[in-house]
Design a protein around this nucleic acid. Structure first.
Lengths: 337, 337
DNA sequence: TTGAAAGCGCTAACAC
DNA sequence: GTGTTAGCGCTTTCAA
């Protein structure tokens, strides 16, 4: 059924020479005569010889493969991170194998096990929302597999990491809203067991405090998707002292707010400003166009991979942990004053 | 530096037994005494023994790995296809390795080579827009690697395939527009060297013909992205006899049309209907919400993978080529009457 | 019930 | 300049 690919042995047999000569010829080893090389290479090309990556990896104990663990590829942010990862991996001569956790702890653990069995050289990971135990990551570390966490890091585990400066990103976005005249700014955030959620909320609160505005619990909601935004926004808008701005931790949520606000007949941005986070394609096609914080996912991915490759190449010494922070920037469009 | 994972030999040495006994114990072979098994398994668990997938694959000549070649993960349609692929692969006990072509022929070829070197058991592929030569796919076939094309198939190569019923999808969407009273329906499509582009356009033209409407070349444009839509829509709207509906081959383009139409002060859907294709998240957050043709990407991916796995398991006989067609359905929202 | 040996495809030390 | 051999981690005949 399944045809075996041609091997070095096959070539050797056909050409009546030894496998090592074939191997060396293909590797352009200086010891081999040009004539032999020509014959071997011609034969190999003709028969479409392809080196067996498995055999090579097994021998060298080096798979040239990086494992990536992330929540969901369908999310714009993660797929852009992945692009950065892949491009950089390719430059470094590494293959990438991906495990989606789907925000599910068990799948994340299984993924980590699979990466271990696949003998990956290193792992990039962003943890699932439901993950609260980190043994599977610790096991990677214990097996001396270098790790770099990105975005959703795992504070308990000491590794290189690269995160978005959520705190500053939110803080400066909220300050922008304040400068533009907003005084009652609502915050729609995620449940707070991920460090990243807290950072964002702190950015929001500190921006208010710095500018002498009160932090009103009434204006802070756990809400991080479109449908929830449709449900919660009306409540806030019917408050006696309704918000004059909304900050949402992702663009879907922000668009939900935007649609409700429009439906209520309030003008954007004159009566209500709205700011999102991620800056995905939604922001570029909404009406009005959405002001949003760009997280530079591609760069984040590329930097994380570079960090890992440096570590693998032994560029950096053992113990020093590097923590990179990606600056966001606010892309101002039409939904804010 | 890199710590070697513990191997069967290590266990054998530590326990003063032979590697074969360890191997058999771990595989729960009936010949081995329960006592030996217990000792071995305990030791293996304690030292976190992980089978070396490479060695196994090399021996069995079966990597249990499927290669996937696709244009761009960042596109909603492809990432949903990928989800279907991965879920189904997991059920079948297969790993997945992904090659993004980024719509680039050379990258696609390199991807195919990499899959060959990785000795994948099978390949799922959707071809890049720039691909016009198919030797790299033919080489996979020649190496007896079963292939299934999905969505963007390669007509010249005889393999299993699963496609979206673009023709019927477009046709019935356009008929819906006609039934709702539209008479001058513009069509924004892709450059036509992909079979899929032609199918869509044929669906459009046939729907018009079936209903006794003229096919007006003036209303057919090559336009498949947001910015192009912003550029081309005004032209059509300023025609003496302007279109009363637009059909676009993806949602980004449709939203571009939608925004231009709104900006011109025309009412949607009363004066102009708009219909997209893909039904991605944009359709659910635009204003008005976009009517769009759902392609069922997840199912497509799952079915493609099932087809491949059946082939690998020898369920189906050698020559019979299976061609599955995924029915679309029109999700009617607010942008059409 | 267990062990020894061979071999999957490849390369590198060591012959010659 | 080329060949022989051993070994990466694993399983599986074959032998004991």
């Amino acid at each position: 059924m399944k045809k075996r690919q041609i091997t070095i042995k096959d070539i050797a047999k056909a050409l009546h020479i030894s496998p090592s000569t074939v191997s060396r010829s293909l590797a352009d080893h200086p010891d081999i005569s040009q004539e032999t090389k020509n014959i071997v290479n011609a034969y190999a090309r003709e028969h479409k010889y392809k080196p067996n990556a498995l055999a090579l990896s097994l021998r060298t104990n080096n798979t040239k493969t990086i494992g990536v663990i992330l929540p969901q590829i369908v999310h714009y942010f993660f797929s852009s991170v992945l692009s950065g990862i892949e491009d950089e991996a390719e430059k470094g001569g590494y293959r990438v194998i991906i495990c989606q956790s789907n925000e599910n702890y068990e799948k994340e653990v299984k993924g980590a096990q699979a990466l271990l069995e696949a003998r990956v050289c290193g792992v990039l990971a962003s943890v699932a929302k439901t993950t609260t135990i980190y043994n599977h990551f610790q096991e990677l570390i214990d097996s001396d597999i270098p790790m770099v966490f990105f975005d959703r890091i795992c504070t308990g585990i000491l590794t290189d990491r690269v995160v978005v400066d959520d705190y500053a990103g939110v803080c400066s976005a909220v300050e922008y809203l304040i400068r533009s005249g907003c005084r009652r700014i609502a915050f729609f955030g995620s449940p707070s067991h991920l460090a990243i959620s807290n950072n964002r909320r702190m950015g929001y609160e500190d921006a208010l405090r710095k500018n002498g505005l009160p932090v009103d619990k009434e204006l802070i909601k756990i809400c991080d998707n479109y449908t929830e935004a449709l449900r919660l926004t009306p409540e806030l808008l019917s408050l006696p002292n309704r918000p004059d701005a909304f900050f949402a931790v992702n663009d879907e949520t922000a668009i939900g707010v935007l649609n409700v606000v429009k439906a209520k007949g309030l003008r954007i941005p004159d009566e209500v400003s709205i700011c999102g986070f991620t800056n995905n394609s939604l922001a570029e096609v909404s009406d009005p166009l959405l002001t949003s914080v760009d997280q530079h996912g591609y760069e984040l991915g590329a930097i994380a991979m570079r960090l890992l490759i440096e570590r693998l190449n032994g560029v950096r010494d053992g113990d020093r942990i590097v923590s990179k922070i990606i600056k966001t920037n606010l892309v101002v469009r039409q939904s804010t004053r």
